[in-house]
């Protein structure tokens, strides 16, 4: 095989590996792109502290809760709508109850609509910063302390803050399988 053919093969081989790694590079690139443009309503998952100001205007905040898949917990906002002023800190709470007879761990993932409001929302404190573990039957009021800054675009009159809780309990798979078998045996007996 001649030299130029070997060179072509080398270049093509490197391109293949390069594109494979590029596909993984798309993951951080996607996050950076969304962060810079504020496209998908993702909120920073860490505490930020901003000075309060008095020059704000009135807006309406709506709180929405979702349970992912078959997450059995009761999860709802204590107040569904809150009239607030931009530039001021407010605290609201979400009610959760573990209705199962197992200890479970949950993670809440926040999202903001409209998405260009996301970068104007600062949270001093949020239950979504941490995982929440509740014992069987335990209930709690989870706080969010937040501020909508005064740079919020003028056309935005109301902002929806949505939280979805995911079940992230580290299940013992064998135990789970036994449990399911047990349940199905029970249901067969009852027929």
């Amino acid at each position: 095989m001649n030299k130029s053919a070997k060179k072509t093969i080398k270049v093509l081989g490197f391109t293949v590996f390069g594109m494979f790694f590029f596909s993984f590079a798309l993951v951080p690139l996607y996050d950076v792109f969304c962060e810079v443009t504020g496209l998908n309503g993702k909120v920073a998952l860490e505490s930020t502290n901003i000075e309060e100001v008095d020059t704000g205007r009135e807006i309406k905040l709506q709180f929405i809760s979702h349970n992912n898949e078959e997450m059995p917990w009761i999860f709802k906002p204590s107040e569904e709508v809150l009239d607030v002023k931009t530039g001021k800190y407010y605290t609201t709470t979400f009610y959760v109850k573990n209705v199962t007879n197992k200890e479970m761990t949950a993670q809440a993932i926040p999202s903001v609509a409209p998405s260009n409001a996301a970068s104007h929302l600062s949270k001093l404190e949020c239950f979504c910063f941490n995982q929440q573990t509740l014992k069987p039957g335990e209930e709690a009021l989870l706080p969010v302390k937040f501020l909508v800054d005064t740079d919020l675009p003028n056309n935005i009159k109301s902002v929806a803050m949505s939280y979805t809780i995911f079940d992230i309990t580290d299940y013992d798979k064998q135990e789970l399988a036994m449990q399911m078998n047990h349940d199905s045996m029970h249901s067969e007996e009852s027929h």
């Binding site: 093509l12 391109t15 293949v16 590996f17 390069g18 594109m19 494979f20 790694f21 590029f22 596909s23 993984f24 798309l26």
Partner: peptide, 9 residues
């Protein structure tokens, strides 16, 4: 060459 590695990724 350009996109099959992305599918693999």
């Amino acid at each position: 060459i350009a996109v099959m590695p992305v599918l693999a990724g």
